[in-house]
Design a protein around this nucleic acid. Structure first.
Lengths: 114, 114
DNA sequence: GTATTATGCAACCTGGAGGTTGCTAATGGA
DNA sequence: TCCATTAGCAACCTCCAGGTTGCATAATAC
């Protein structure tokens, strides 16, 4: 069995940061609203929500901190736009884990069949 | 533009729960240790860590709560084993988001080219 | 039989997450 | 010009996540 498959899994800290940012229902739904690729103002994003505009603002700040959204002021509005890079990053991360897992199963199978 | 691509993105609550469980460096590294598919005792998992065994136990409980690991007692030991199902679930979730995003870009491109 | 090892339990501490309210400032429309 | 809309700031509150210490208990090793 290859023991030296010291596959990356580095930058754990950064990944955890992104996971954490997505680890809240409200923020996840914000991401869902922003997936249309268009910019949305804070009040637009707050619409229909049960929590305050200020609370939404805080969530947006968290998302921004993880690089998941970017903010640009336009007139009196603050417009938010989704940035998919961190999402892609997580995707790759999970892909690596999945591959390792599949490899594990494969190794186990070979072991049993011998 | 197809506006009715009301793709699921349901069960947001559940996904957020899994994201949250992975949103901590310590827990992420625990998952990394468990990716070998074998069972590990709490003390084994605590080895080399800077935090207390009890702290590790708490993290393991969180992971278990998200269904990411399962616990089985064997003698005086508590053995933990990774369960990849939630990870696969997240993978699918991110895949859907990515596809939506790519679709968005595609639509935008078509729009511009007209 | 005793010492050692692996956990469990409970109490306790601290900081920050998630929310709210109240007020102020800047912009845009009528 | 005046009013409504959109945000930002700050203070405050509550609760729980992440950690620790101390002690009790069950299995094992010797």
């Amino acid at each position: 069995m290859p023991r030296n498959s010291a596959v990356a899994l580095k930058a754990t800290k950064q990944q955890a940061h992104i996971f954490a940012a997505l680890g809240d229902p409200t923020r996840l739904s914000l991401v869902a609203k922003l997936i249309d690729g268009e910019t949305h103002s804070i009040s637009a994003l707050s619409e229909g929500s049960k929590i305050t505009r200020q609370a939404v603002t805080k969530h947006l700040t968290v998302l921004e901190g993880a690089g998941l959204v970017s903010k640009v002021k336009e007139g009196r509005e603050s417009l938010y736009l989704l940035d998919p890079k961190p999402l892609k990053s997580l995707q790759e991360y999970l892909d690596i884990i999945s591959m390792q897992w599949d490899q594990t199963l494969q190794n186990l199978k070979s072991f049993v069949e011998e």
